[in-house]
């Protein structure tokens, strides 16, 4: 009986990691017009407990995208420098949209797995109920 539970745990870890990624994507999209904002990135890695890999997935450390910020010409902007330029954010809405779609799709796949594991456990218990 330990296997179904560990399958549930794996699926839950996948959902947790994907929702964290979705949260960062939403944060990036919200800040698409914030001057000087750098895009936030998370990479996934295998979770390690007590020095042993568990097979679960978790979101790693958040990093900032180091691509140079675009210089936008707007002399009327309060943050514009002497030449009339200010640093925008390096968020690309198109990329964030694609990223959020992918995260949603992977989340759903994990959810389907969770549901199926639960069903399998339930039908196993159904044998006892006779």
């Amino acid at each position: 009986m330990s296997e179904p539970i560990s399958a549930l745990r794996l699926a839950a870890s996948g959902m947790r990691a994907q929702s964290e990624r979705l949260r960062h994507t939403a944060e990036n999209m919200a800040n698409v017009d914030t001057p000087g904002y750098r895009r936030k990135l998370v990479t996934f890695e295998e979770a390690v407990r007590f020095g042993r890999p568990t097979g679960e997935v978790e979101a790693g450390r958040m990093r900032l995208d180091q691509t140079p910020l675009p210089q936008i010409y707007d002399p009327a902007h309060p943050m514009a420098n002497a030449e009339g330029y200010y640093a925008g954010s390096n968020v690309e809405l198109m990329i964030e949209l694609a990223d959020s779609r992918e995260a949603g799709r992977s989340y759903e796949a994990n959810l389907r797995m969770f549901e199926q594991t639960r069903q399998m456990g339930a039908s196993l218990l159904e044998i006892l109920r006779r």
């Binding site: 560990s6 794996l10 996948g14 295998e46 992977s106 994990n110 399998m120």
Partner: peptide, 23 residues
């Protein structure tokens, strides 16, 4: 049933790591 339960864990692990680099 035992075999299938083990396989379910493997498939769940694959799906959880669907976006892990190098997996």
């Amino acid at each position: 049933g035992h075999h299938v339960a083990q396989r379910q864990v493997v498939v769940a692990r694959n799906i959880a790591n669907a976006d892990t680099p190098g997996y």
